[in-house]
Write a protein that binds this DNA or RNA. Sequence first.
RNA 1: GUGGGUGUAGCUCAGCCGGCAGAGCACCUGACUGUGGCUCAGGGGGCCGUGGGUUCAAAUCCCAUCACCCACCCCA
Length: 426
Amino acid sequence: MEIKTVRGMKDILPGEVARWERVEQSARSTLRAYGFEEIRTPVLEATGLFERAIGQATDIVSKEMYTFNERGGASVSLRPEATASVCRAYVEHHMNSEGALAKLYLIGPMFRTERPQAGRQRQFHQISAEAIGCAHPLADVEMITLLSDLLIGAGADRFTLLLNSVGCGHETCRARFVTLFTQYLKAHLPSLCPECRGRYPKRVWRILDCKKEGCRKVTRGGPSLAEHIRTAACDCGRHFETVQKGLKASGVAFQIEPCLVRGLDYYTKTAFEVVAQGLGAQDAVAAGGRYDGLVELLGGPQVGGVGMAIGLERLMLALEAGGKNAAEEAKGGVYVALLGESGVESALHFVRKLREGGVPCHMAFETSRSLKSQLREADRLKLRSVVMLGEREMERQVVTVKDLVAREQKELPIRELVAYLTRAVQ
RNA sequence: GUGGGUGUAGCUCAGCCGGCAGAGCACCUGACUGUGGCUCAGGGGGCCGUGGGUUCAAAUCCCAUCACCCACCCCA
């Protein structure tokens, strides 16, 4: 029986890697421009980290993590997202003592045991950025602007930025809303969909973003989250105002989505999500928000933080849907065709020299193959030049160099070959 | 976890009222001795997802199972 990739895992094949590299390179340069530095944390963390940070009641922690026991018995999990790990590292390495806001980014795989579907895999990749150590709304503005520039830099254009505030735990803010909302829903439970009725006792406010018309009708008639945040005694209302003004000043388009709610418990105040067109059901390409309180929860200082993550597979899908698949560039490079054994040693020598000079080289190993098939292979590899080396050439210490594009060929002394081809590439 | 769809050549798929396993693309070889793309001719390649059942006979009908896809859910 053939062994295949594990369910939900996917190979990224050579033909696609070029696109991944382009996106990653563009992202790194944008992140550098915003003053972010890369951090690489382990893929494996203590299970308790995610239970505490993301929340035990969330779907991610309660049923989507790859969790197992180490030999000693300690429970560990593959990370389902990046923020918890980065905050853990921030605390563990006392990054707050460096004074400045810690601006960190991480590119890597995340793991969730969900049922795979379009735009959803069990191992997927994110670019995530975190600004830890500051509660100021302009940090939110910078984070969202960064996100927008990352997407534009990757070549995405048809996307929509949804923005909301989810308030904070202050008694006059989200906490009060949740209490009132719960009371209100109690009377309307029969009108809700079965899923929402299931959500009712534990995660009431996820009912807010249910897409079913019946549920929306009910929630519209209830207390307003936005209104509570606006009038709360904490600074959530002003914070949200400043974020919106800052985004306008930065020239970042957004759309207020009053029902936007995040699935991770640590979010406070600003929450945002980017949806792209043409992606099917899993259309959220990026998302993020503020998480004041998370660092403290992990045993660190009382500092604010804000972050976001881009789903790379989904971004690739969005680029494809937008026809942004740049045609693969014509390769340069040289194919060394051998006619008989006599030229092998000479070929080995100059192939090494060519590669030293940065010229991509392919060499035929099977000298018994017909020249025809060797040329066909060179053509298929989209190489520019073919160096032919056989008895005839060896006798006179020359090589035949054929230009596949110009369809011309000429003879050169072997000594001049490396210099000639190195020049041709530049 | 729930529902629907699909599993046949390397790829995309046809064949499915049971009767010898097919096409296009790709690959290999050849068309005056050592010259690519185009054309033409030939060729290799299949446990018809897996296991069971019905039948003289199963890719085809029935049951089970697995995988993939899509949607719900969830989320990036």
